[in-house]
Simulated assay, not measured.
Amino acid sequence: MARWTVADVPDQRGRTVVVTGANSGIGFETARVLAEHGATVVLACRDVARARRAAARIRAGAPTPYRRVEPDVRVEQLDLASITSVRSAAERIRAAHPRLDLLINNAGVMRPPPGHTEDGFEPTFGINHLGHFALTGLLLDRLLATAGSRIVTVTSLLHRYGRIDVEHPHSLPSGERRSRRPYPDSKLANVMFTLDLQRRLAQAGVSTIAVAAHPGIARTELARHLPPPVRVFMGARMAPVMSWLIQSSQTGAWAPVRAAVDPDARGGEYYGPDGLFHSSGPPVVTGFSAHARDLGRQRRLWEESERLTGVMCLVESGQSLSS
């Protein structure tokens, strides 16, 4: 089978897409490709000024073989560290876009400064998982009303090192609790959420699907809080000798894009690079960790996420309730 590239992206005209964290890195490149293929793309970002500059860059981009229309790019303010902000953003998106074809839960942090989210959660878990869980629930009815819609959640290779003890819900990395592996745990939660969401969608008999993807190891701003030697190792200056292991954000975006648009994609699949250690290369279907596939843990994580966010995702009717 030929290697998949962005040249394989179908025409996206008529589709409305929301991409979180789309002002830089994987999110920006994902939004750019979809907009250049004709989708109306909403950049849902915490920093509105940066998002507007990103939207301007997409509109002003050089012509490409697949740039079929003038990109239609919008901006919405979304702070995943605040459930109040998530609710407000969802309301604005719903008001502006009655049709929603694709939600890409991309935004994330790794090793942020010490502190808590507005709601008292450990920031890595609160932003990477709980914020996206709430946003998905609040937009779910719009997605279910659109035939063939998708929810794509961007996770990480490091989900394999995550361990979430949902047997004791209060040990989740929220409030005063701390995980020894906050980033892998949050990425494991992304995977578990995708799998549980897909099972619920399938049981409801709807055409909406949930898919996961990871970018391998890519040069993005996600590494900005890592130790200096690691940042140098992952920086652009090392690209000529490290391309076999570390890829650009443009190529890293191929897996989320394929998960979003491949007509052959199935719910519950997981896309990632096919190269050495699955760190770089064209996207293919790959596998989750055994821990992620535990049905009981998935269900308990879902229940605890509803409790923590106050958003109950009712997949059967495509509704969400806020407590």
Rank of each mutant, 00 (worst) to 15 (best):
I104V: 13
L80Q: 01
L158S: 13
A259E: 02
A292E: 04
R180C: 12
R87F: 07
P215E: 04
I127D: 00
V206T: 11
S156M: 10
R219N: 03
H116T: 09
S88M: 13
T124D: 05
I164N: 05
V191M: 11
V42R: 04
W4R: 04
A236C: 10
A292K: 02
L130H: 10
R3M: 14
L295M: 15
R99D: 06
V69G: 05
A202C: 10
T64G: 07
L157V: 09
L139E: 01
V241H: 08
A134S: 07
F125Y: 15
G126H: 11
M234S: 02
R199H: 08
Y270E: 02
R231W: 08
S243F: 14
A7G: 13
Q198E: 12
E306M: 08
L201Y: 08
W244N: 13
P256T: 06
A292G: 06
E316F: 06
S149F: 01
V206A: 08
R87L: 11
G205S: 09
S305A: 15
V9S: 00
V69D: 05
Q77T: 13
F121T: 02
V73N: 00
V311K: 03
S249R: 03
P228Q: 13
L143G: 00
R299S: 06
L276G: 07
D101G: 07
R99G: 07
D47M: 06
H97F: 13
M192I: 07
G137P: 08
A49S: 12
H97G: 06
R111K: 15
G205L: 10
Y66M: 09
V33M: 03
R68Q: 00
S249V: 00
R87E: 13
R57Q: 11
L201D: 00
Q203G: 14
A202V: 10
P229F: 10
A90P: 07
A35M: 05
R163A: 14
V6A: 08
E304D: 13
R160S: 15
R266W: 13
A95Y: 08
P240C: 08
A62G: 10
A202K: 12
F288S: 06
R199K: 12
V75N: 00
R299K: 09
H225T: 12
A49Q: 12
Q298F: 14
D79S: 14
A54R: 01
D196Q: 11
W302S: 02
A49Y: 05
R13A: 14
Y66R: 08
R178I: 05
V73W: 00
R300W: 05
K187C: 06
R299F: 06
T5Q: 06
D294S: 06
P184Q: 05
V86I: 09
G137L: 07
P182K: 04
A39N: 02
R160D: 11
T20A: 03
R52Y: 05
V211L: 11
R15A: 03
S248A: 10
A202N: 11
